[in-house]
Write a protein that binds this DNA or RNA. Structure first.
Lengths: 169, 169
DNA sequence: GCTGAAACCGATAGGAA
DNA sequence: TTCCTATCGGTTTCAGC
């Protein structure tokens, strides 16, 4: 098993994480508001070293930020669509313009450039499907380089965005 | 514009959110560790009502939980794949078994049932593409009802998972 | 429902093991 | 490094508006 390799220092990573730090990360992914005391209790360290580790991982960018996860339905965003987008390769500056537009529109909450059929995969949230239709026509279709869009409406959330698995460390 | 409808009470939502509460939610999405004092300063309320609103929104499930967002690369998860999965409709209990397996495997960090070509869309993270290949063969292909998989490897993250837009409220 | 003050508890920083 | 302790600041509660 490769696990032992990674136990105290993971060479493949940008940042060395030992068992205690991994436990901290797992706990903070589940509840970012845990007090240092609670954290230290769980991982079997006292609070000062626990606190130092958290601060170091924040500074090193292992912990990027902390966020409140909202219930989409309760804030009136019942509609979620996964959209595959293709760009017309012959148009000038398509990539730059498309990626800039993606950043500017808050309804697009995720976007990846991918291999496979599509050039990009987007996650778009709106109050209802009507608003998505409007967004498609007023925003996406208006972008110069967009040649194809395939929209997949989310029918059911089987697994919501979940903590990153850290057992490989 | 429909905006005025929603200003003080959004009929379509499960929970009524006024301007101050929306500001709180926006701030907490950006930084879940903001102190009540900082929050209250930003929104122009004193700390007691700010605190009460936060607690109420937690209890009402508007705020689902708080999480630490980690840097994928720095915790050794350089590979991310979006996988479309189709199930064979004739096999018994496929849906239940597939969705149960999705919950059990930590490498699958998101899963949606969607309209369109695929039955499901999955997001899978692994240390490298080799581990993804192993995961496909050892886990996904072994599930009885899975008939098709189309994997799109993420080449570049244009927009990481971002705060929900709340301007419609 | 908001304000302000007061009590309590946790976070941060220093020094010792 | 970690632990202990003191200080400081934030959270939470309560009385009054």
């Amino acid at each position: 098993m490769r696990k032992s390799f990674f136990k105290w220092r993971c060479m493949e990573n940008k940042y060395p994480l030992d068992g205690a730090s991994v436990k901290i990360l797992k706990a903070l992914q589940q509840d970012a508001r845990l007090s240092v005391q609670d954290l230290s209790g769980r991982i079997g360290l006292s609070s000062t070293p626990t606190w130092k580790r958290v601060k170091e991982m924040e500074k090193a960018g292992v912990i990027d930020h902390y966020t409140a996860v909202l219930n989409r339905a309760r804030v009136g965003l019942k509609n979620c669509v996964l959209a595959e987008v293709n760009l017309a390769r012959h148009v000038e500056n398509v990539v730059e313009e498309f990626e800039k537009a993606v950043q500017e529109h808050d309804a697009i909450i995720e976007c990846y450039a991918t291999t496979g059929q599509a050039d990009y995969m987007l996650k778009v949230v709106t109050p209802d499907i009507g608003e998505y239709d409007a967004f498609l026509h007023n925003v996406i279709f208006k972008l110069p380089g967009v040649s194809e869009i395939r929209s997949s409406v989310v029918l059911r959330e089987i697994k919501p965005p979940s903590p990153l698995p850290l057992d490989h460390l």
